[in-house]
Design a protein around this nucleic acid. Structure first.
Lengths: 236, 236
DNA sequence: GTGCAAAAGATCGTATACAATTTCATCGCT
DNA sequence: AGCGATGAAATTGTATACGATCTTTTGCAC
């Protein structure tokens, strides 16, 4: 699926160098190997990937357009640290677009798509029962892939790209404000949505999707964390 | 409004050089001073704005993320030439998100906002009656600003940015496939939508918005134009 | 005159170099 | 000791340089 998405948008427009670095860093952010606020200096990134600062910079700029890193003038790039307000807007956007995407997807879905969705679900379940960091990370990715796949099925490349941005940023928000150590997404809810689509209960599928998103938000603690600056941190 | 949008997202994150060039080119594209397919070589852009190719390149890359220019590897950057399929997806995306944005906006709208919207409408009407290229260009911009302002009122910066992209790309589509020499947007329909919002007829406002978008699409001729390569062009 | 091949020209891809700005440590003062 | 100023180190902002790839032109054979 990932490869399909890539193949669709690009042929030789592939900006080989920077693109690869961008993807690598994005993956690291989405899988939470990089924490919000981490500094990403151009030189460091360049050295790490064995390229010049030019390419490193281009990659960071690209990520800044996606909202995954914030670059501050003359200060450098950092893994984005979404504010509570930003977090709310990200999920508001998802509530706004995902039902619509779902409807589009349901209208065009093929048996092969359903099969692939269920495959994804299975894989997600398998990872959930596994222990270990790698499994956890793969699970995070898989749970986002469910939403992304619906966008892909919808057949609208623009909405697909937008969803990719939203899912990636959601991962950051959950990393920052998520409370339950449990997984990012209620796994069973994904299955329910597929069932509703299969039985053509479109309105119900949308309801389930909205509940699902609300459910994720419920697990967030969106109170302003004022950096708690060293003094307060120790005067208990 | 434009300044408000900028102030919100950026403070010193302003990437001064490239950002300015990017904005200038975008404006030129949206106002149709640059036609789809026009070549934008890095050197030319750099010379034009009296900066190095580095900055020109950064600006073009940025525009490519917004879908306004397409860069082809080792060949150069061109003002985007959206395919009919792309055009359909752009408007499908607008149909998907604009009703939701409208609902959000209606929930938060203040009297001051209404006043500003009407102001915009008035200005739009004034430009419509005027003659001349400059008036036409200003009108195109104004008609898009109506939709953008609703997004701004909705208070969701993410959806606002997405709408900015969609409106800009719509302008390209209309430039390519629009038939009526008339303006890009049914002017009166904007007024109707405001009225519906004022009288809290939310469902009706959404319906009007959908009709409005459909109305714009009706004016498009989305048939594949195969470049009509010089020979066919003259053998009538 | 037509068609293909090779070289010249133009344009992009990437690296490196230098200037401007910020950050941090050091020093002196209160 | 605490606080502010000053200078060095680090980092980003921008320009230039060189190599790679594509385009176009030129020239030769047919």
């Amino acid at each position: 699926m990932k490869s399909a998405a890539k193949a669709m948008q690009a042929e030789d427009t592939a900006e080989t160098g920077a693109q690869q670095i961008r993807d690598a860093i994005r993956e690291a952010i989405v899988e939470r190997r990089l924490s919000p606020g981490t500094k990403l200096s151009e030189s460091d990134v360049g050295n790490l990937f064995k390229v010049s600062r030019t390419l490193a910079r281009a990659a960071l700029q690209a990520l800044s357009y996606e909202g995954l890193v914030s670059v501050e003038k003359n200060r450098g790039a950092f893994v984005a640290y979404p504010s509570p307000e930003e977090a709310r807007q990200i999920f508001a956007a998802r509530r706004l677009v995902e039902p619509g995407i779902l409807r589009e997807a349901a209208a065009r879905i093929t048996p092969a798509d359903v099969k692939q969705l269920k495959q994804l679900l299975l894989e997600e379940g398998r990872l959930m029962s596994e222990r270990g960091q790698t499994a956890r990370r793969a699970e995070i990715k898989a749970s986002g892939d469910f939403h992304l796949m619906l966008a892909e099925i919808s057949g609208n490349a623009i909405m697909q790209r937008f969803m990719e941005e939203l899912v990636a940023r959601s991962s950051l928000v959950i990393a920052l404000y998520g409370q339950s150590t449990a997984s990012s997404c209620g796994h069973s809810e994904h299955g329910d949505i597929i069932s509703a689509i299969e039985s053509k209960e479109l309105d119900r599928a949308c309801q389930l999707m909205l509940h699902h998103i609300a459910h994720i938000e419920t697990d967030l603690d969106l109170r302003e964390r004022k950096s708690l600056g060293l003094k307060e941190a120790f005067e208990l």
